[in-house]
Each structure stands twice: as C-alpha cells, then as structure tokens.
Design a protein around this nucleic acid. Structure first.
Length: 285
DNA sequence: TGTTGACCTCT
DNA sequence: GAGGTCAAC
C-alpha cells in the first residue's frame, strides 16, 4: 500500500544549499530537516551520511515525483565537466559542491518569480506562504498544522487585486493576477511549453503580463529543465562584473552576451553555482 | 536602441 | 534599497 518513508542513496547532493539557494521558495529548515510541499504533497527531507530520507504524511506507492523534483538521477559530474576552466567558476563549485537544480512545477515557479521583483528571498518565501495559506488547498502533514498546496491558476485568477495586495504583494499583485488571467484566457498554453525549444518557450512566457526575460529564463531553467539558459539578474550582474571584469564596466548587453557564450551547454547550472557562491561568500556592490 | 523612473511595502 | 517589468523619453 506504500510507505511513509523512503531512503535514497545520493552522491554529491548538498540538500541545504539546494533548498536554500533561491530557486524554490517553499522550504523551511527545522533542525536537521527540511519541510516543504511539492505539488499536493507535504514532505520532510533529511540528508545524512550520503542518504536522503523522505518522510510523507500519507503512504506513498511511487516516489517518482520526488526523484524528479530533486533530480536524483541527474549526472552532476557530466555537467560540471562542461564548465569553463577558470578561477571564478572553480571557486564557485568548490564552495558548494553538490548544489543541484530542482525541477519545479511551471505555474508555481512562474508565479514565485513574478513575485520576486525587487524582493529578497526571505520576503518571497513570506509572500508564497501567505498566498498558499490563504488560497491553497489544505493537505495532510506530520506537523500540528496542516500544510497548503500552492494555489491554482484558476483560484488566483478569480481573486481581486486588493485581496492579493493583502498578502504583501504590493505592485506585484496586478502582475500575478494578469499572468493567471492570461493563461486562463489561453494567451499561452503552459502544457505545451515542454514540447518547445527554449527560445520558443521564452517567447511564449514573455507574452504573459509582468513576465520579462529574467522571469522567463528562471522558469525555463527551474521548471523546464533548459539547463543552457542563464538568467541574468542584478546579483549575477554584480558577480560577473566583479569576478570576470574587475577592471572595466561592461554594459548590460555585453554581460548578457558573455553569459550566453562563456558557460557552455550547462550555463544555467553554472549560473546557480555563481549565484549561490556570490550571495553567501562575496561582498558585492 | 539604450536609459530612466514609477510601481508597493518592508528591513 | 530590494533577485523586475513596462512605458516613456
């Protein structure tokens, strides 16, 4: 009938770095464990001695959803081997070896990054939590309080801008609302995105209200698995600036071009290493 | 084609 | 001043 627990043997998997690196916003660290919601399921994860142990609230027959989300079968060595052989990249990898890319749900990822505009990770988490508590389906957890799924497109689209602003969304409220309504109005078809190339999918995503190149790229990378896509945000701009061009100040366009040509077929993966390394270890300005 | 300010609210 | 976008120069 399925199990409440399951152990996966892993090699080079830094769960802490991966879940806190700002690619997903639903994870909470409690002691040694991480609690979160993936789709409609609550789960608690713990890494120890090369094993990830997962604990569910209800018996699970098939754990494929979790293996997919955590990308447990991804060949990390193969990706790392394609990175440029330069000092900034080596330092970034050395500082968090085992940092991974998750594979998230398109809508949740899209919505989360729409909310990310000029916000820090802590605050993005806060907005996502408020939205889920208020508009998401309650689901079973092993804690005293129930957990909540991320709200559906339909539910968000039916909200008023004013109620969304009450979840501390500020000027992001009309953007989230607009994107949800655009999708319901079939301005784009989320189901079809996985069948498109990354540049086709980027064009589609950017048809949505409030979605520009940065958010589109984050969705391509974190939900679509387009690992060659390199989202450029202000952190990465500063990091590239400091690490690769300490003596001059390239234009945004030049940095964009550098990002697109320097990092190879797993550029998005490389970006994640640089991003996390910069955020934790570098003084940027 | 490239740059600048407005947009909410909170630390 | 914050992990962005859009519209107006």
């Amino acid at each position: 009938m399925g199990d409440l627990r399951k152990t996966f043997h892993v090699r080079d998997y830094d769960l802490d770095a991966t879940l806190s690196s700002g690619q997903a916003f639903r994870w909470q660290q409690l002691g040694q464990a991480w609690e979160g919601v993936i789709g409609g399921r609550w789960v608690r994860l713990r890494l120890s001695k090369g094993d990830i142990t997962a604990e569910a609230a209800k018996p699970v027959r098939d754990w494929a959803w979790l293996e997919h989300y955590l990308q447990l079968h991804f060949n990390l060595d193969q990706a790392l081997a394609t990175f440029p052989d330069d000092e900034p990249m080596q330092n970034a990898v050395a500082s968090f070896p085992g940092l991974r890319l998750l594979r998230q749900d398109y809508w949740e990822c899209l919505a989360s990054f729409i909310l990310s505009a000029t916000k820090q990770i802590v605050q993005i988490r806060q907005m996502v939590m408020l939205l889920s508590k208020r508009y998401g389906e309650p689901i079973a957890s092993n804690d005293d309080d129930p957990a909540f799924a991320f709200p559906t497109i339909k539910v968000i689209a039916a909200c008023g801008e004013k109620e969304l602003r009450e979840c501390k969304l500020g000027f992001r409220a009309p953007n989230l609302l607009g994107a949800a309504r655009d999708i319901l109005d079939k301005k784009i078809d989320l189901q079809r995105l996985p069948t498109l190339t990354s540049s086709e999918a980027r064009k589609e995503l950017m048809k949505l209200h409030g979605v520009g190149p940065k958010i589109a790229d984050c969705v391509l990378l974190f939900a679509g698995g387009h690992q060659e896509v390199f989202p450029v945000d202000v952190w990465i701009e500063r990091a590239l600036q400091q690490l690769y061009f300490p003596k001059r100040r390239p234009s945004a366009k030049q940095l964009r071009k550098f990002a697109d040509t320097h990092f190879g077929p797993y550029a998005g993966f490389a970006q994640q290493y640089l991003f996390h390394h910069a955020r934790v270890h570098l003084k940027l300005k």
